[in-house]
Design a protein around this nucleic acid. Sequence first.
DNA 1: CACTCCAGATGACAATGTCAACTGTAGGAT
DNA 2: ATCCTACAGTTGACATTGTCATCTGGAGTG
Lengths: 192, 192
Amino acid sequence: MVSRRDSAAATRRALLDAARQLLDEGGPQRVTLREVGARAELSRGAPYRHFADKESLLAAVGAESWERIADALALLQPTSSRKPAALLLEALDALMTVARVEPEVYRMMFTMPTREPEPSIRAAARAQGEFLRIVGSLVGPERAHLYGAMLLTSAHGVASMDASGHLSPQMWQTTPQAVVSALVDLLAERAD
Amino acid sequence: MVSRRDSAAATRRALLDAARQLLDEGGPQRVTLREVGARAELSRGAPYRHFADKESLLAAVGAESWERIADALALLQPTSSRKPAALLLEALDALMTVARVEPEVYRMMFTMPTREPEPSIRAAARAQGEFLRIVGSLVGPERAHLYGAMLLTSAHGVASMDASGHLSPQMWQTTPQAVVSALVDLLAERAD
DNA sequence: CACTCCAGATGACAATGTCAACTGTAGGAT
DNA sequence: ATCCTACAGTTGACATTGTCATCTGGAGTG
């Protein structure tokens, strides 16, 4: 039995999936509301029943990725086998993995309109909150903000430049992971 | 006396200026080839005499900013009054200033298509070469690559997240400058 | 069973990127 | 001086696309 609410949620999901798929195929330009509708086996105007406009649809895709990252980070808890430093690397890798696997989606996570109550901003804030917790467990709460900012922005920066091709491998003879890892090491010795 | 070549160069300049202006007013969507032509007091098809398509025009704007940064960095030479660390901060600030003053142009510097022979990529590589030189003068050539990567990507990351509003000031109680400055300090002590 | 609400479909329109065809002129060739 | 050519710039035309107004059908409600 499919209630109307469930059906609406399902089509919204289908629209988001179609948008994400198209985004990855060829960037925002490739995402056409008509094609999104077609991939969801709907008509061209269907997306307007779920999203205000194209920008909102793309923003929702980006916000969803922030949500996923926040969820993944929330699951990262220190155990006896997982040292804080390893945890931290995993957390940073969660972000950089999106940049590597879905570069266009990753770009959308930061390209979105930035009015305050935007879902993308809120989800990003939640993810950053989780991240702060992880950093704090390594370097202590008093340094968490500064070190957290250094780590997160560094991870984003290297992932972003790598994804956009502006970080030529022959020039920087290091991988994004190595850069972030070196920074973690540097900060870890200051943690004692 | 205006030769034909000079005239062509002048209109190309006018088109680039119009595009940059429109870009800053409202992002890539605001940049319409018709409006670019109008601002340059030309017709709608005029841009096609100088750029292959809209993407190329925007890419040229981004490449130009990379050129400017490369030029600015080339002028940064260590003197008795300018210590290497201060020089390094100036270099990083050159990048972050673009992000603050012309956020949309800054975004374009990294959003562009990334085929290898792209002017934007080449200009970025030049800028990064200059930057490497400055970093090397502080930490020595052997660490220049890794530390340079850490510094540049961190600057880009924090500037980018700040510009897109995904770095909420109340959460990260630090400014972009403070983040980068702290990282410079951290690396500088390792330089001895 | 009648009514309401809303997801979805469709027609229409304006904006825009893009190209083909055309025009005028600067600067060299004859 | 005259003709020719290359090319910057213009204009007409077209397909694509975002967006809205309007219409339709069926699920839920009384």
